[in-house]
Design a binder for these strands. Structure first.
Lengths: 192, 192
DNA sequence: CAAATAACTGGACCGGCGGTCAACTTATGC
DNA sequence: GCATAAGTTGACCGCCGGTCCAGTTATTTG
């Protein structure tokens, strides 16, 4: 017996409710009880499904990022395999920004949640998004410019998306474009 | 009556205690009661002095950054006025990394604290560090390369110091050096 | 040196949080 | 239809950031 139908329905209800709350409120005002109420379920159910606040945010982020992830592993170039590393990298950061911009406050909520003392990440969970993204970026960086400290550089690139001011910029249309342009400049600068 | 002697003594005790706790524990395990206990004062005293958790962290950070700040406004080049913008900028980010690396977890603690709903920042407080740093970086960027979106780029550069992985790197000796080198590469790349 | 006073102190207290749990309900496979 | 594993729930727990005020103490003033 894998996952019951009602359970799946509730999972969706909780995710959608969280999403909706995230568009209306700053992350620290979104308590788990509030999420539960908005989803029309008991608090216990939320924890049963997602384990913790961090787990809920992670699941939501993962869901949002899946499309991007699929496009990366077997979509058409320039995002997918086939294009030169430089183009793939630029396309990828655009994609990441798009995902992030659709989720005002999600990244921040994630941070806040992850900060909790060494949260136990169940072994059967998919690896955290950050790790996947970092690996992808570092790989492309290394391919495009072997001399570089790809590991650190990838962290620096990803890190720039956290931080409140950038988040605030990204949630507005032109802001996201400016951030994307800025990141591209940074990356092309380092690749040439 | 400005500030009583015993009050000043307690302020120091609290700051030192916080500092000490930050070297031993992750920020989310450092409650205000714990700080108070470690400093040998009552919890009320801590709040009376610093207003909030954010205020305490900000004060500590400010204290740490003061040396850098002074060097920037009227120290010798390349940090202070006189050197070309490019050199000043590179020296500055080195300085920032040094400050940050001396305070494992402080930045994270600050973030966590600042996240609280629009914390009332008393008017007589110095402007937040982030703002000062951002203005300095953006100014130098603009001077060194007028075409650039200095505002966004400065945010991206500063933002990269937040985020857990970078923090973890920075607290170790070689890690800090790698991060500094990575940042320099990013910046020189964008300036040329 | 007192007396007056304003600043400082501390800890009981508050609302709310994330997370747990044991009793109860329900979908599902046979 | 029935057994049972899975799901659901809300009262409950410990803790946290922040408030408050009665009591204490450094400082100023005459």
């Amino acid at each position: 017996m894998a996952e019951r139908a009602d359970a799946a329905r509730n999972r969706q209800a909780i995710l959608r409710a969280t999403e909706e709350l995230l568009t209306r409120l700053p992350p620290e005002q979104i308590s788990m009880e509030r999420v539960a109420a908005a989803a029309g379920v008991g608090k216990g159910t939320v924890f049963h499904r997602f384990g913790s606040r961090a787990g809920l945010m992670r699941a939501l982020m993962q869901e949002r990022a899946m499309v991007l992830q699929e496009a990366v592993v077997d979509g058409p170039p320039p995002l997918g395999p086939g294009a030169p590393a430089r183009e793939r990298l630029l396309a990828f950061v655009d994609g990441v920004i798009e995902v992030v911009s659709r989720n005002k406050g999600l990244l921040a909520a994630l941070d806040h949640a992850e900060a909790v003392v060494s949260a136990k990440i169940p072994d059967d969970d998919p690896p955290p998004l950050h790790a996947i993204w970092h690996r992808h970026i570092a790989g492309l960086l290394h391919e495009a410019r072997p001399g570089l400290d790809a590991d650190v550089t990838a962290h620096l690139i990803l890190a720039s998306l956290h931080s409140d001011p950038i988040q605030r910029l990204v949630v507005t249309g032109e802001g996201a474009a400016r951030v994307a342009a800025g990141l591209r400049t940074l990356i092309t600068g380092v690749l040439d």
